[in-house]
């Protein structure tokens, strides 16, 4: 079989399509390719554009408000005098507590599931349970906190207190810490464990001395991501009844844990939902403060992860 035209790849074929038609169609196919690639790029660009517009809009609306007195004043009915010190302090209290609760509990649960129980039905059941919990709407955790921490555990928490809020948010973000812990433990090579066992160490000694230190950057990343989720949560705290007007700071003692509280997102929500436009710029100022804290936390997480991956 020879071709009449050596410059083309054409040959006889049962396909009733000739070379010219094929090439014409091919040009069209490439046009579709370009459109497709452009759409894909546009999707990313659009998402990031929205993010940029959001940040710029908030910045323009709120930067004029962010000053020392805004950070140190209590909320007020008069927009000009209002500040967010009680929300800021409340957020710090709640975040510290959430960190103190989720770190040991989350890491302990992760170590237990990954290192101490083999792949039996119990481990699988807990695993399915955790992945399901991660998808439960946060407001449902608020209802849980309202019943269990605010009402049943009233003698300990004194109701709608910092402690109730922190416990509620801890349960909410615990799955994040457990999953992150398990993933980082899984990334530690098995040979490290075997080397430890070969020296006669118990499983716990091996985990404590060799495995956990190697997994720690990943674990810390998980904890920070969990905290950055918790810091922005509003709905569950509204549900357990965090107040929006707190003209005092909690006492710096164990008693302070039982004090009523507010946090940044709730203060922002309160300002946004007021009908008077004057409060909107306060909300924007609050968002700037919240986003700065959040970005710092995320930057730390990304930094830790990049170091971890090397």
């Amino acid at each position: 079989m020879t071709t009449s035209n050596p410059q083309s790849f054409e040959r006889e074929s049962s396909w009733n399509i000739d070379q010219a038609t094929f090439l014409k169609a091919l040009r069209q196919r490439y046009t579709f390719d370009k459109v497709f690639a452009t759409l894909a790029l546009l999707a990313v660009v659009f998402s990031l554009f929205v993010l940029a517009v959001l940040l710029i809009d908030v910045f323009i609306d709120g930067i004029g408000r962010v000053n020392w007195s805004f950070l140190t004043s209590f909320p007020s009915r008069r927009p000009a005098e209002a500040g967010l010190v009680s929300a800021l302090v409340g957020t710090v209290w709640v975040m510290v507590l959430v960190a103190l609760i989720t770190f040991p509990v989350g890491v302990g649960a992760g170590v237990f599931l990954e290192e101490f129980i083999s792949d039996n039905w119990f481990a699988r059941a807990i695993e399915i349970n955790i992945s399901n919990l991660a998808a439960v709407p946060s407001i449902i955790y608020g209802l849980l906190g309202l019943q269990v921490f605010v009402r049943v555990m009233f003698p300990i928490t004194q109701g709608r207190s910092i402690l109730s809020g922190a416990l509620t948010l801890s349960l909410l973000v615990l799955p994040i810490v457990i999953i992150a812990t398990r993933e980082s433990l899984r990334a530690v090579p098995g040979s490290i464990r075997q080397a430890g066992f070969a020296l006669g160490a118990t499983r716990w000694q091996v985990v404590r001395e060799h495995v956990l230190p190697l997994a720690m950057p990943g674990v810390l990343t998980g904890v920070i991501l969990a905290l950055s989720r918790a810091i922005g949560e509003t709905a569950p705290l509204i549900t357990i009844g965090a107040l929006t007007y707190i003209p005092f700071l909690p006492e710096l003692s164990l008693k302070g844990l039982q004090s009523p509280f507010t946090v940044l997102p709730i203060q922002i929500f309160n300002w946004v939902s007021r009908p008077q436009a004057d409060f909107y710029s306060l909300a924007a100022g609050g968002i700037i403060v919240l986003m700065v804290v959040l970005l710092l936390m995320n930057a730390t997480a990304i930094y830790l992860r990049n170091r971890f991956q090397k």
Binding site: L51, G232, V272, I287, L290, N298, I302
Partner: peptide, 17 residues
Amino acid sequence: PALEILAGVPTVVFGYF
């Protein structure tokens, strides 16, 4: 990471927006 920042924006901020 930029998309992760978008994912990390608190929903109350999106509400404002």
